[in-house]
């Protein structure tokens, strides 16, 4: 371990990443900013402004944004029909939404990754079964399937995650299967086979790295869509139990007051729209800028 040890660095590394970040368009910066603000708010917000679903405060019912509450605080985003501060409710909802979306994507993504790798790499009957099951499931509207599952399982955060993950794995499996097929017959994989590498080693060191970038893009987009799906389930009363805040259930409650107190539905609705669009932009960005070398 003497002599020369120059590392010429590949195209990439930390400095170029920063430079690339700076060169991004404005909408990208806005999207990244929005997502960061929401993530921090979801993480820390409920600590600063706690939400207690059981608390009611009749004198503070249906106050408009900016009104002063009976305890002297200002309700910047107004209050709902039982006198809860919408800001606290939306912050708590943010946390639910994020948790459900991230865990769902993690679970669905892992299952999809595994099945996609198996289907794409080994092909044959394994691919046949996995792909057919996926096709059948995709032919069925995913929200309907989620509603069905959530209805059967009953309201709880874990059940929501299970229901949503079951509807998502196919998407990830398809993405991974596609990339796996694309690299499976590449010569560098053949050359590993000729070396005598085992299937496990080839999957882990040769196939997997090529599947990760597209999987990451898909996962980003799915985080946004899962948030919508979670809100939809909660809106229908099939989501998280009423003891936990959710944008969906807040919007559902606000439905009856659209004329008198629009802010109850509008605030969580706008939050949802904003964060989902931002995540979508982020996903596109990842797709466009992913290093061509990593696509190999």
């Amino acid at each position: 371990m003497t002599a020369v040890r120059t590392t010429p660095g590949r195209s990439g590394g930390p400095a170029p990443v920063l430079r690339r970040l700076a060169a991004l368009p404005l909408r990208a910066h806005l999207a990244i900013g929005t997502v960061l603000v929401f993530a921090v708010a979801g993480l820390l917000g409920p600590l600063i402004k706690p939400y207690d679903s059981a608390r009611t405060s009749p004198p503070d019912r249906l106050l408009p944004p900016g009104a002063r509450l009976s305890d002297g605080a200002v309700a910047w985003l107004g209050t709902d029909q039982v006198g809860q501060d919408i800001l606290a409710e939306v912050l708590a909802g943010m946390r639910t939404s994020l948790t459900v979306a991230l865990v769902t994507v993690l679970v669905g993504g892992s299952v999809g990754l595994f099945l996609g790798l198996v289907a794409g790499y080994f092909g044959g009957w394994a691919d046949g079964i996995i792909s057919r099951v996926g096709d059948i499931q995709l032919a069925f509207p995913s929200l309907l399937l989620a509603i069905l599952l959530a209805g059967v399982l009953g309201p709880s955060m874990v059940n929501v995650i299970i229901a949503l993950a079951v509807t998502r794995w196919v998407i990830f499996a398809r993405v991974v299967r596609g990339s796996a097929i694309a690299v499976r017959d590449r010569e560098f994989v053949d050359s590993a086979r000729v070396m005598g590498a085992s299937h496990g080693r080839i999957l882990l060191h040769y196939i997997l790295p090529s599947c990760l970038p597209p999987l990451l893009v898909a996962a980003t987009v799915q985080v946004g869509l899962t948030m919508v799906a979670e809100a939809s389930l909660s809106f229908l009363g099939l989501g998280v139990p009423s003891s936990q805040a959710s944008w969906g259930s807040t919007i559902a409650e606000g439905r009856d007051y659209l004329a008198s107190a629009w802010w109850i539905a509008a605030v969580p609705g706008a939050a949802l729209a904003l964060v989902v669009v931002s995540i979508g932009i982020l996903g596109d960005l990842l797709r466009d800028t992913s290093d061509p070398m990593t696509e190999l």
Binding site: R186, E187, F188, D190, S191, A192, V194, M195, H205, Y206, P209, M293, T294, L296
Partner: peptide, 14 residues
């Protein structure tokens, strides 16, 4: 051992 025609394709780029 096998040596392919296109050494770029047969070497893992990563």
């Amino acid at each position: 051992q096998l040596i392919f025609q296109d050494p770029y394709a047969s070497l893992n780029p990563r």
